[in-house]
């Protein structure tokens, strides 16, 4: 369709959609004054029932744990899909040196990166393990851990990065994270009343060992998300290195 025709069609539709969306949101309660919701029911009960102080974490991993499993699966599938899309049919050996020549790092970056790396990793582990006590959790912490791995790439070079965090390590890590969530869910089915039933003792609120299986689920998700994002990054970086490789060696 020519640009003008498409714009006309879109404008007409968007105008009508704008009116509709406006009409729809006008039916919502005034901002800040939503009525009683399921969220309120849960907030009132969460510290008593699960001995957990972070309500969002309790919802993500307990009350609505199956949604989180679906979310984890989406990441899992996306990693596989990116690997499928970016795979190189020719299977040339990856010349990791090509990464070095094209992506020079200065000494400053190297120093700062390596100095920051342990801090980032520590922060990531803290966020993952305290997801049920203070804001955070498996997803957020996992992303931080993955960015730590990326720091390794920025500070070093592709060769170091690839050797340390390569696929034979990342794939099982991700699968263990995914499988761990499932195993815990099935344990709930076997030892409790339902899939993802919280069957461990709840401890006392504010401790790390509270909330039953919630901290364990946080750990599995953190592992899966961290590994998954690193795998996606590896795929992208490999693509770039292969492109550069072909440029360098005509």
């Amino acid at each position: 369709m020519r640009h003008r025709a498409r714009l006309a069609l879109f404008s007409a539709g968007a105008l009508a959609l704008a009116v509709l969306l406006g009409w729809g949101v006008l039916g919502l309660p005034r901002f800040g004054h939503t009525h009683d919701t399921v969220g309120d029911v849960i907030t009132a009960a969460v510290t008593g029932e699960r001995h957990v102080s972070e309500t969002v974490g309790a919802i993500t991993f307990d009350y609505r744990g199956i949604d989180t499993m679906g979310e984890e699966l989406i990441l899992f599938v996306a990693v596989a899909a990116v690997a499928i899309v970016l795979r190189d049919e020719h299977e040339e050996p990856l010349d990791e040196g090509a990464g070095r020549t094209s992506l020079q790092t200065s000494e400053t970056i190297r120093f700062i990166g390596l100095a920051l790396l342990p801090c980032v990793v520590l922060l990531g582990l803290y966020i993952v393990s305290h997801g049920h006590v203070s804001p955070g959790g498996g997803f957020q912490g996992g992303v931080i851990l993955a960015s730590g791995a990326l720091l390794l790439f920025l500070a070093g070079d592709f060769r170091t990065f690839h050797r340390t965090v390569s696929e034979p390590v990342g794939d099982p890590a991700e699968a263990v994270g995914m499988g761990g969530y499932l195993v815990i869910g099935l344990a709930g089915l076997a030892f409790g009343a339902a899939f993802l039933d919280n069957v461990l003792p709840f401890g006392s609120s504010g401790d790390i060992a509270s909330g039953g299986v919630i901290p364990l689920l946080n750990l599995t998700v953190g592992l899966e998300v961290g590994a998954g994002i690193v795998l996606i990054t590896i795929e992208y970086l490999e693509t770039i290195v292969r492109v550069r490789q072909r440029e360098v060696v005509p």
Partner: peptide, 9 residues
């Protein structure tokens, strides 16, 4: 564009 028009319709 068609999607937007369709939903609006």
């Amino acid at each position: 564009a068609w999607l937007v028009a369709g939903v609006a319709l």
